[in-house]
C-alpha cells in the first residue's frame, strides 16, 4: 500500500468513528427531547382532581390500604354498590378537627341509604390518627395512606379534601377543599352527597 493510500484509509476510519459518535449524540438529544414532549403533552399528572378540572368523567382510582379502625385492609372496590364520601385527613390538621363531627353525622344519617364515609389518613402517625378517631368517636372506616401513594393518584392538594363517589364507582360533584362544614363548602357538600346517592340529576 502506498503512503497516500495508507493515509486515506486511516482518515476514513477516523471519519467513521466521528460519524458514529455524532449519531449517538444526536439520538441521545432526540430521546431527551421526546421525553420532554411526552411529559408535557401526555402525562396525566395531577391525578383525579386534574382530570375533573378538564371536565372528564373519572372512575375512582382503586386502592387497597391498611385499616386503622380495625385489623386488616380495605379496598375501595369492596364498597362498589355504595355511595362513598372519600375524606382525606390528618390528625395534625386543624380544619380536619372541625369537620370530623360533621362527617360522623353524615355517616350515621345516610348509612341506611347505602352511604359510607371513608377516611383516608395521610402523612400521619398511626397512633396519632387512632387517638384522633377516639377523640371524635368516629365509627366510619378509616384507612392509612402513610406512603402517600393514594393521595398522589387522587391529585390531593392538601388536607382536608373530600371526594364523592357514586354507586358505580364514578366520581361525582366537585372535590371539596377545606372543611366540609365551612360556609363556602356546605352547599357543595350536600350536593355531593345527593349526587353520590343518586338522588340528584
Amino acid at each position: 500500500m502506498t503512503r497516500a493510500a495508507k493515509h486515506r484509509s486511516s482518515a476514513r476510519q477516523r471519519n467513521i468513528v466521528q460519524r458514529v459518535g455524532q449519531t449517538i449524540a444526536l439520538v441521545g438529544v432526540a430521546a431527551l427531547l421526546g421525553l420532554l414532549v411526552w411529559k408535557v403533552a401526555f402525562d396525566r399528572d395531577g391525578g383525579v382532581a386534574a382530570e375533573l378540572g378538564r371536565g372528564n368523567t373519572v372512575q375512582a382510582p382503586s386502592f387497597t390500604l391498611e385499616r386503622l379502625d380495625r385489623e386488616g385492609q380495605l379496598s375501595i372496590a369492596d364498597l362498589r354498590g355504595k355511595a362513598v364520601v372519600v375524606n382525606f385527613w390528618a390528625s395534625w390538621c386543624l380544619p380536619c378537627r372541625e369537620e370530623a363531627p360533621v362527617l360522623q353525622q353524615t355517616y350515621e344519617r345516610y348509612r341506611d341509604d347505602g352511604l359510607v364515609v371513608l377516611g383516608v389518613d395521610y402523612n400521619d402517625f398511626r397512633q396519632d390518627a387512632r387517638r384522633f378517631m377516639e377523640r371524635f368517636a368516629l365509627t366510619y372506616p378509616v384507612v392509612f395512606d402513610g406512603k402517600g401513594s393514594t393521595a398522589g393518584k387522587w391529585g390531593l392538594r392538601g388536607v382536608p379534601e373530600t371526594f364523592f363517589v357514586n354507586r358505580s364507582g364514578t366520581i361525582v360533584g366537585a372535590p371539596i377543599y377545606g372543611p366540609v362544614d365551612s360556609e363556602r363548602n356546605r352547599d357543595a357538600y350536600e350536593r355531593g352527597i345527593a349526587l353520590a346517592l343518586g338522588d340528584a340529576p
Binding site: D124, F125, G146, K147, G148
Partner: peptide, 8 residues
C-alpha cells in the same frame, strides 16, 4: 419513620 411514611 419509614414504616409510617415510606422511604420518601
Amino acid at each position: 419513620l419509614v414504616d409510617q411514611f415510606g422511604s420518601r
